[in-house]
Write a protein that binds this DNA or RNA. Structure first.
Lengths: 294, 294
DNA sequence: TGAATAGTGTCTTTGAGACAGTATCGA
DNA sequence: TCGATACTGTCTCAAAGACACTATTCA
C-alpha cells in the first residue's frame, strides 16, 4: 500500500502534494452478516433503513469506520455490539471474521463507499433493539431472502462486487410495510449475503464453527441440525454421529445427557462441549456436490 | 454499509450532517502479492520505496484506489499491469483474487490508510520495470523473506491486521543498498505476504490454480514442482502423477511429449493443458499436517 | 403399543500412500 | 553404461457411505 502520489518529506509536504482530484473522498464502512439459529432455521440480522437511499429497504447492519481510532476488526465488533445490544461477555461466544471488501463504483449512489464485510456466527440471540439510525432491526429467515437459497456452492473468489451485476439503483425495491422477507436488500447486500452463505457452508466443512450456533452444551443431533440447515440437505444420522466423535478435538463429552429425548420420541442424547480443535482433521465434507463441477 | 450519521434527504443534506471529526479522512489503497515461479523458486514482486515513510524499504506494489472511477478488482488489475508492464493479453493468463483488507490503526504513520490486498498467480514473467514512484522493482525469492518461510499452515482468518502485532514504526528497517532479501518489508506487508502464502498453499489443494504458474502446455513433473515449491515438501512422484490424471478436469492431454527428458535423464514427459475444472474433486490434500492441530 | 430417534456394528467402495517394477532418456 | 526419471501396477490402510440393528423415549 501507501505508494504516495509524490515524494513528500513529511506530512505537511505530503498533504501539499496531495491532489484531491486524483483521490477524491472515499468513505469506508463495515457491514456484518450476523447468522444465528432460531427455531431451527438460519436467520440473518437485518435493519430497515430510516433514510435514503433505499429508505424503507432492509439492509445489513453496519456503519462507518472511525478512521485512525479503530481497526477493521474493532469496528466490526463495535457495530456488532451496538446492533445486537450484546454484552462483551456474550460477544465472546460469537465468531467474527472478515469476509471481503466490496467497492464497485456506484454501489452507493451518494458517494464512493467501500465496505469491508464481516461474517458472524452467533448462538440464539435475543431480539435486537432498533439502533439509532435504523427504523427497525429484526432476525430474518435466510430462506426465501434474495441472496439466500442454496446458493452457488462452488462459487469462489467473489470477495468483491461484480461490476456486471445488476445496478442496485436500476430497481427500486423500497416499499412501505412489507416484512424483511420477500424484499430486495439495499445496495449490493444481496451479493454480500450470498458470499457470506458460501463462506459459511465451506467453513462448516473444515472448522468446528457449527458449534458457535449452539449453547455451550449441545447434543450431536443438535449439531447435525445446524449442518443440515446451513448445507440445505439431510445427513445420515448414524454416520454423522460416528464421524463427529471420531474427529479429534471437535467435541468433548460432558458425561451428562439431555433432559428430554427427541420431540417425537427417542432416547435422551448425550451432551457435549466444543473441543479445542480449530480445524477439523479429517474434514466433514459435504455429500456429493453433483459430479461434473468443472 | 452506509448507515449515515443522520437522515439526510439528499446529498447536500448528507454532507451538511457529516461531521469530519466522526469520520476523518481515510485513504484506500490496493496492494498486490504477485507470485511467480522463476528458476524453480517461488518469487514475489517487490518495489523499493523512493520516499518516506520506510524510504529505501521494500514493499508490495500497490497504489491508491481512484475512488468512484474504478472498482477494487479493477484497481488491482490496473496496478498489476502498471507494475509488471504486462499487456492485457498476458494479464488474462494471470489469476487475481482478493485476499483481504488491512486497517490496523497506525499501520501507516502518515494518516489512516486501509489497504485491500490482492493475490496474483502468474507464469514466469519478464523483469519488472521500475514504476514512476518506485526506485526499483524486482522479483524476490520468497524463501528467507520476512513473511516467507513455511508459514503457519493452520492460521485462519488473518485477513485483517492484528492490532497486537509489532508496530511497524517501532523498528526502522530502512537501509541503503541491501537486496530485497534479508530485509524487513514496509508497513504490515510481511503480514500480508504471510497471509498470501497461506492462501496460496490452501488454494493449491482445492483448485487447479497451480497451472497458472506454468506455460500453457506443461508436464506432470513440472506441475509437481510447483506444488513442492509452494508447499515446501517433496511429493511422491508416482502417486502425484496418478492423482493428477484421476481428478476430472484438472489437466487434459495434448497428445504431445516434451522435447527433452529430465535434465538429469529419464524419458520425455507427456504434455498437458489446464482442464476446465475450477475446483478439484477430490482435492489434492497436503501430506500430513502433523497430527494434533487442534 | 407404536413410531421416531440415539447410538453402534458391519460391509462395501473409494481414495491415499507405500513400494516395486519397467521403459526411456541424458551424460 | 549408469543413474535418474516417467509412468504403471499392486498392496495396505483409512475413511465415507449404505444398511441393519438395539435400546430408549414420546405420544
Amino acid at each position: 500500500m501507501s505508494r504516495q502520489p509524490a515524494r513528500p518529506d513529511d506530512e505537511a509536504a505530503f498533504l501539499a502534494a496531495y491532489d484531491p482530484r486524483d483521490f477524491p473522498a472515499i468513505a469506508l464502512t463495515v457491514d456484518i452478516v450476523v447468522l444465528t439459529m432460531r427455531e431451527g432455521r438460519l436467520n440473518v440480522l437485518l435493519v430497515e433503513r430510516a433514510g435514503p437511499p433505499f429508505q424503507g429497504c432492509w439492509a445489513l447492519p453496519g456503519g462507518f469506520v472511525k478512521a485512525g481510532q479503530e481497526g477493521l476488526d474493532e469496528a466490526a465488533a463495535r457495530e456488532l455490539a451496538e446492533e445486537t445490544g450484546l454484552s462483551a461477555g456474550a460477544l465472546r461466544r460469537v465468531h467474527l471474521e472478515q469476509l471481503g471488501s466490496y467497492g464497485a463504483p456506484g454501489r452507493d449512489p451518494r458517494m464512493p463507499v467501500v465496505s469491508v464485510a464481516y461474517l458472524a456466527f452467533a448462538p440464539d440471540l435475543p431480539d435486537p433493539r432498533a439502533g439509532g439510525d435504523a427504523a427497525r432491526a429484526q432476525w430474518t429467515p435466510v430462506v426465501g431472502l434474495h441472496g439466500g437459497g442454496t446458493g452457488d456452492r462452488h462459487a469462489t473468489d467473489r470477495h468483491s462486487a461484480d461490476p456486471h451485476s445488476t445496478d442496485p439503483r436500476s430497481t427500486d425495491p423500497r416499499s412501505t410495510d412489507r416484512p424483511a422477507t420477500d424484499r430486495e436488500l439495499a445496495f449490493d447486500h444481496a451479493q454480500i449475503l450470498a458470499d457470506a452463505l458460501d463462506r459459511a457452508r465451506a467453513k462448516l466443512e473444515y472448522t468446528p464453527l457449527a458449534t458457535a450456533f449452539l449453547a455451550p452444551e449441545f447434543t450431536v443431533p443438535e449439531l447435525r441440525a445446524v449442518y443440515e440447515e446451513i448445507w440445505g440437505e439431510k445427513l445420515h444420522p448414524g454416520n454423522f454421529h460416528r464421524k463427529v466423535l471420531s474427529v479429534p478435538g471437535f467435541v468433548e463429552s460432558t458425561g451428562e445427557t439431555a433432559e428430554r429425548g427427541g420431540s417425537r420420541g427417542g432416547p435422551r442424547a448425550r451432551l457435549y462441549r466444543a473441543g479445542d480443535a480449530r480445524l477439523l482433521h479429517p474434514a466433514l465434507l459435504r455429500p456429493d456436490r453433483e459430479e461434473g463441477v468443472r
